[in-house]
Nucleic acid binder design. Structure first.
Lengths: 136, 136
DNA sequence: CGAATAATGCTATTGACCATAGCAATCTGT
DNA sequence: ACAGATTGCTATGGTCAATAGCATTATTCG
């Protein structure tokens, strides 16, 4: 029934990502962030020199869509925009941001190990390299 | 840089799914369907007894969202709604739908093999079972 | 130096997608 | 036969990504 589709790697990839991101979204929402915001926060952890454009490029987020994202992070008080020159803005975590990012770090760490625990041992170590081969 | 995030299975899963679905979406769009529609069409291939609710349950699409989806498929002439009783509707492919679904089948088949080709041989066979362990 | 080109941050808008609430009609189980 | 579940649907809202366009500033190169 579903087996027909579940044999397609592409379909399985879509379904797996959807369920995992749904779960992660719920967890993160309890702590006030969204998934994309979490990625940005982890990226600027311990950095004070990343610009909006740079972040967008490494996460594949368009410049236009970075704006409301950073607005939210800034108005939450976790990040501030600091002019690097007349054009570029460095995105730097505030003190509150550092604390929040530390909390986020342990949250993600726990989530990732629980994710790996679901996978049969003989397949576990192959998932990350296989996935990274697909998109990197 | 990105390496930090690329070591997280969850992040890799999200990125891999996004790029793959982006590519698939482009391919399917050239032939007139969207990804979710394709899943429905593959599901009703060679069947004439699946109801909207049943399809929605196996694909995890809400009843409310099945309506516009099936409207599109119906107005494209690929599928028709046939009353099973006074309440349930069977979703059955038309003749044109059968042809379109056959075309879709070869498209998907090619796409899936090309997807697997990207993965190093030693990891390839582990992807599907690992993914299915996550969501099924 | 100065002019052309590129890059940055932003606004505004759009479309796809998913979720919720509610409703009338019909079916099912006891 | 009646209570409760199911089906298909309307209406609506929120999230997310994509496009086009714009003013300002950096950079590159003759």
């Amino acid at each position: 029934m579903t087996d027909l589709l579940a044999q397609l790697p592409g379909y399985a990839l879509r379904r797996a990502a959807n369920t995992v991101m749904g779960e992660l979204g719920d967890i993160l929402a309890e702590h006030g962030f969204r998934i994309t915001e979490a990625a940005v926060l982890l990226l600027v952890r311990d950095r004070a020199d990343l610009t909006s454009s740079q972040i967008g490029r490494t996460l594949d987020i368009q410049r236009a869509n970075m704006v409301p994202l950073l607005n939210r992070l800034e108005s939450a008080g976790w990040v501030r925009r600091e002019p690097l020159d007349g054009k570029s803005m460095a995105i730097v975590p505030t003190a509150a941001g550092d604390a929040k990012i530390a909390q986020l770090g342990t949250l993600i760490e726990q989530f990732e190990t629980e994710l790996l625990d679901r996978i049969p041992a003989e397949h576990r170590d192959h998932l990350l390299p296989a996935l990274n081969a697909i998109w990197r």
